[in-house]
Design a protein around this nucleic acid. Sequence first.
DNA 1: CTTAATGTTCCCCA
DNA 2: TTGGGGAACATTAA
Length: 255
Amino acid sequence: MPELPEAETIVRTLSPHIQGRRILTATFLSRRVSDATGSDIAGRHIAGIRRYGKQILIDLDRGLLLVDLRMTGKLLANGQPGPYTRAIFQLDRGAVLFDDIRQFGSIQLLDVEPTKLGPDPLEIHPAKFAERLRVRNTQVKCALLDQKFVRGIGNIYADEALFLARIHPTTRANQLSKQSALALHSAIVKLLNESIALGGSSVSDYVDASGSKGSFQLQHKVYRKEGKPCPQCGEPITRIVVAQRGTHFCPRCQS
DNA sequence: CTTAATGTTCCCCA
DNA sequence: TTGGGGAACATTAA
């Protein structure tokens, strides 16, 4: 799904449309989207919206909605319903659509905070991040993708951060020098913030709540760049598979 | 027809 | 208990 920067952008672009609004009706067009029913949700007020890792939490006057976008989920303000619209929230002013081509996404109605994931990469102290890596006996890319390790990083930013920090994706996390671990933390913070500033990466079909694409994909150095020259040294970018995900890196820069 | 895609979970094996 | 690997979920695009 959208990763941290995309979720953050969706929250920012959707917030002005839904903050303080009342949900008149909620309609689920696909059984897979939710266990909740429209009548469970109708009538509640929206207190606010926030990001939790790469997920989105919509606080209600009673309970909250946990929106998990997975690979192709979208939240759209005042869009036109189409063939992939899976849920419609009619508000007292405007409407919100949940579109999702692949239907991996979901919207859950919770009465308490969701189960806890790892720390937010933009908030964790660099030394704490390094320490978490040090006690992890797994490939560093696997750690980055594990939402219980840190919440919000996905396949794009994992590959880009490992390139920026010059770390091979299959390096054991507990074998990284403290210096490398800190470089990785710094690369992650830099990339996530830069991406947020550019509205996220639109590589597949990501758009924000207004239907606008981000532009951070133009800054990608290795993600989906197999065979293209490394911007640092010219060596062709290599693609391997790690944790069942396409993994892109420079075999010369990322020893 | 085959492969891969911003993700997670479940199941089996060591 | 931890970690690795594969399948599954549903749909599109190259």
